[in-house]
Structure formats: C-alpha cells, structure tokens
Amino acid sequence: MRRRIQSARLMCFYLLLVVGLVMLSPVVGWAQFENASVIGYVRDKSGAAVSGSSVTLTNTGTNVSQTSKTDGEGKFEFNSVNIGNYVVTAESAGFQTTKTAPFALTVNARQRVDVNVAAGTVNETVEVSAAAQILDTETSSRSTVVGTREVESLPLNGRSYADLALLVPGTRKSFLENQTTSSREASFNVNGQRSAFNNFLLDGLDNNNYGTSNQGFANENIPPSPDAVSEFRVEVNNYSAEYGRAPGAVVNAAIRRGTNQIHGRAWDYVRNTSFNAIGPFLAT
C-alpha cells in the first residue's frame, strides 16, 4: 500500500514537472500564426547596402514601435508583428532620415519593404510616397485575404464570416449527404478536398472541431461574430509546414484590435418572415 502511494506521488511530481516545463518553454510561441513579418533592405541611391542602419517600424494606429539594425547586406526583419497600418523609418550616419508611406500589414503576411536613402544629414527627413511591394515575393504559398471591407459590406445569410471564403478561387460550399440546400457552418471544399480537411485558426489558436461528432453543426469550434473579425486569410496551396495537420485550406482569422482613437458601433440584428418579399404567385 505504501509503495502505491509513493508511486502515485512520484507520478504527480512528474506530471507537475512536465506541465511547468511546457509553460516555461518557447512552445507558447507556436500560436502566433496570425502575426506577420516585415522584411526589407536599406540601400543608397547606387544600390549599395547600408549596414548598421537603425530601422524603426511604427504602428500608425497605436504609435507602438520597434527598432532593428541592418546587417552587412543592409537587411532588416521584424517578426511577430500584429496586423495593422505601419511606416518604416531608416536612419544612418551620413544619410537623410527616410520615412516610407503607410502600408497595410495583413494576417500572416511576409511584407517586403525596401528603403532607399540619400546622402545628407540625419536631421533631414525624406518621406517616400510608395514603399511596400504589392506582390508577395517573399513566400511561395497561394492565398487570398478577405479584409475588413468585405466582412463589413458583403451580405451574409446566417452571420457566418466563413461563408466569405467562397470568394476564394477553387472553393465551393460543402453539403451533407442528407441535405441539398444547406450545410454546417464553415463547411466548404477547397480544390476538391473534403471539408473536414480544412484547418481553422483564430488569433493563432487551433479552432477546429475534430472527429465526426461535429456532423450537422460546425467545422470550426468557435465561430466569431463578423463584427469581431478584422480579416482572415485562406491559404489553399503550398503553405508553410508550420501549419501541418491538414491537407486542405488554412483559414487564419484575426480578431479586431484597438487603436488610440475611441470608436465603436451599434447595430440591431432582426430576422423575421414578415420582412420577406411577397411571392409572385401569391393568391389574391
């Protein structure tokens, strides 16, 4: 009996040790899929790299900034950056301070922003009218971003933001075998894959309903309100191995974040058959 008690205590000790190591380890950083990266090069007018430049990335909505130094190739990189609007400022001895135009950073983007500096003093500031590349040249994945404008403006029958994934090429609504006019929430086929093969992420956290217990309900565990969704990216092919698990699409949704400006909204959601249009064959 005493040996059993000692074994139980030993097992509890090991369990607490493992839990503590997991909480203190860098594994917490795994759930950062909704964040983005900003990379680029600082070069002079001749195209030569400017090493040791101080590069600052500033969120225009919150004024939160972070600073990095360029390496020997003039390259800088900011990882795990929240989505939003940003500007990049480059400062280096013997060159004018250069500030880019604001650019949008979307969910899980790898945004390329190059800065060309001119000779002068640091006290002189030059603002560039164009900076960020429109084409995504830093990743080989194929994806589509459904932004805030689409989430707010496009009609949704059922208030499911995931229905907007049908805007992505190669996507169709997935119907159950015993249903012909409707399907469960967030259920769609991408490039011919089964709907159960899709991978849903919400602010970087796993948001999937696993197994067959979700039949007739939802493919994602927590369907957020469209008013809470800032944007989402649907990756359909050749996405990074960090996602793993699923051969279908990766639906990466990000919840809205606040800024320094106070804002809000009010709305009323009413659904009643009294508002339906009169049928063309209604008897009089």
Rank of each mutant, 00 (worst) to 15 (best):
M1Y: 13
R3W: 15
R3M: 06
R3G: 05
Q6L: 14
L10T: 08
M11W: 04
L15P: 00
L21C: 14
W30T: 03
W30G: 00
A31M: 14
E34M: 01
E34Y: 03
A36G: 00
V38C: 06
S54Y: 03
V55Y: 05
L57Q: 03
V64I: 14
T67I: 10
F76W: 08
F78T: 09
N79K: 15
S80C: 04
V81W: 04
I83P: 00
I83E: 05
G84Q: 13
S92G: 02
G94I: 02
Q96A: 09
L105K: 02
N108G: 00
D114C: 14
N116W: 09
E124T: 11
T125E: 14
E127D: 04
S129L: 11
A131F: 03
A131Q: 02
A132H: 03
I134R: 05
L135Y: 03
E138C: 05
T144K: 02
V145R: 04
V146L: 15
R149F: 00
E150P: 00
V151C: 02
R159H: 08
S160E: 11
L164K: 00
A165Q: 03
A165W: 02
L167S: 12
L167H: 06
F175V: 04
L176Q: 12
T180I: 12
S182I: 12
S182D: 12
S183R: 06
R194W: 07
F200E: 03
L205C: 01
N208W: 08
Y210D: 05
N214H: 14
F217D: 13
S225K: 01
P226D: 09
S230C: 00
F232G: 00
V234M: 06
N237M: 13
Y243D: 07
R245P: 01
A253F: 01
R256Y: 06
R257H: 08
I262P: 03
H263L: 08
G264F: 05
W267Q: 05
F275P: 00
F281C: 05
